[in-house]
Amino acid sequence: MEEEKKEEEMALFTKNYMEWKGGGKRDYSYNNIPRFYYRLPAEDEVLQQKLREESRAVFLQRKSRELLDNEELQNLWFLLDKHQTPPMIGEEAMINYDNFLKVGEKAGAKCMQFFTARVFAKLLHSDPYGRISIMQFFNYVMRKGKIKIQDILACSFLDDLLELRDEELSKESQESNWFSAPSALRVYGQYLNLDKDHNGMLSKEELSRYGTGTFTNVFLDQVYQGCLTYDGEMDYKTYLDFVLALENRKEPAALQYIFKLLDIENKGYLNVFTLNYFFRDEIFDMVKPKDPCKITLQDLVNSSQGDTVTSILIDLNGFWTYENREVLVANDNDSSADLDDT
């Protein structure tokens, strides 16, 4: 009896020991665990580098499509304003939960994430009628205070953020870094200088003095029609988007921002009429689009001339520089020759 008990214990021990070592019956679910680590391609692995760049670009495009564009934001504001619940508190429009849900049904699928009981409760404070501020909710939609870690890792601005850790970073590098204190002060200072009437907003006339003051009237009209404004004036948030796009015109996201302003017929491409509306037909020769009668955003990106083309279309100084490029090059050569002679 005792021998049988020892043999049973030994068999149980052996069974558990072998399973612990992996020698017994295996859990084949481990074979289904997806691979989560891929090494970065080396510099000489050109194909893998290109694949990584294309994958990242597709990912960012997919994420950008999830964001509300200016037209969708304007539609959301219109719906909120239409469904406001009286009485107003001073000049602030309010909305109750029933109308809040009605707006959510009409605003579209991309907005549904904001029309939840949790969001409403978060913005509900001490209103006696159980309402929330329309402006406060709208600001919540535009400035939702969360960024996913994977989105940060996928974006190119992470390098700029990490660069700020260098305590010995030169003044020039700090000024060119969008996230640095000198850069923020520069942009904010520009905004204050443009705001001549000191009302905290920029009118079209005030924005026309931006930079060298050479924006075309046609382009400024499109800016104030296509961007989110309040009674025809631009706030600082919209101004930041505007400046960021203009200062990074080689980036696909910046080109997309400007492209929407240039696409006056909302067709998804720039045709002869559109370009004539702004300036010149010769732009087709610069871009060399797939379709000779229209220019798509992808054509603009592929041409590597996107920054030049958008400068020509929106900035008189950019157009003049392009038109006189041969003269400028000749002058530079003459200046270099004079320096060599001395």
Rank of each mutant, 00 (worst) to 15 (best):
L194G: 01
S176A: 09
A154R: 02
Q113G: 07
R280D: 12
E172N: 06
R65L: 05
H83K: 12
Q136H: 07
Y30A: 01
N331P: 05
N271H: 02
N302R: 09
T216Y: 10
L12H: 06
I33V: 14
L158D: 02
Q84K: 13
S336K: 13
T229H: 07
E233L: 05
Y236H: 12
S335E: 14
E72W: 03
E66V: 05
V187P: 02
I147G: 01
K82T: 08
Y236N: 03
L47R: 13
I132D: 01
T296G: 04
Q256M: 12
W20L: 15
E43K: 11
F284Y: 08
K102M: 10
K204C: 09
S170M: 01
I89W: 05
R65T: 01
N75A: 14
R143H: 04
S303A: 04
I152T: 04
P252I: 05
I258L: 14
L47C: 09
C227M: 14
R165V: 15
F78Y: 15
F157W: 10
E92S: 11
Y30S: 09
W77S: 02
V329I: 04
K122V: 01
F100G: 03
L185F: 03
E9Q: 05
F137A: 01
P182D: 06
F59V: 06
F115P: 06
C155I: 05
Q225H: 13
Q150T: 13
Y17W: 04
E247P: 02
K146I: 00
L339G: 09
F179L: 11
E105H: 14
L339N: 07
S55M: 14
F219T: 08
T214M: 14
K288I: 11
I33H: 05
E247I: 10
T216K: 04
L300I: 08
R165C: 09
L228D: 06
M286H: 03
L328E: 12
L261Q: 00
N139P: 02
T214H: 13
Y38D: 08
E43A: 14
F242I: 00
G23Q: 10
R26C: 13
L202S: 02
V58W: 03
N324K: 12
E3V: 11
F59G: 00
K25A: 10
R249Q: 13
D291H: 13
L275F: 06
P41D: 04
K6P: 04
L240P: 00
M94D: 01
K171C: 04
E92Y: 04
F219H: 06
I33R: 06
K290D: 15
Q113M: 07
D160K: 00
R62L: 12
Q298M: 04
N32Y: 12
N75E: 12
Y129E: 14
I295Q: 14
N16V: 11
A330R: 15
E66W: 00
N99R: 03
L328D: 15
D263I: 02
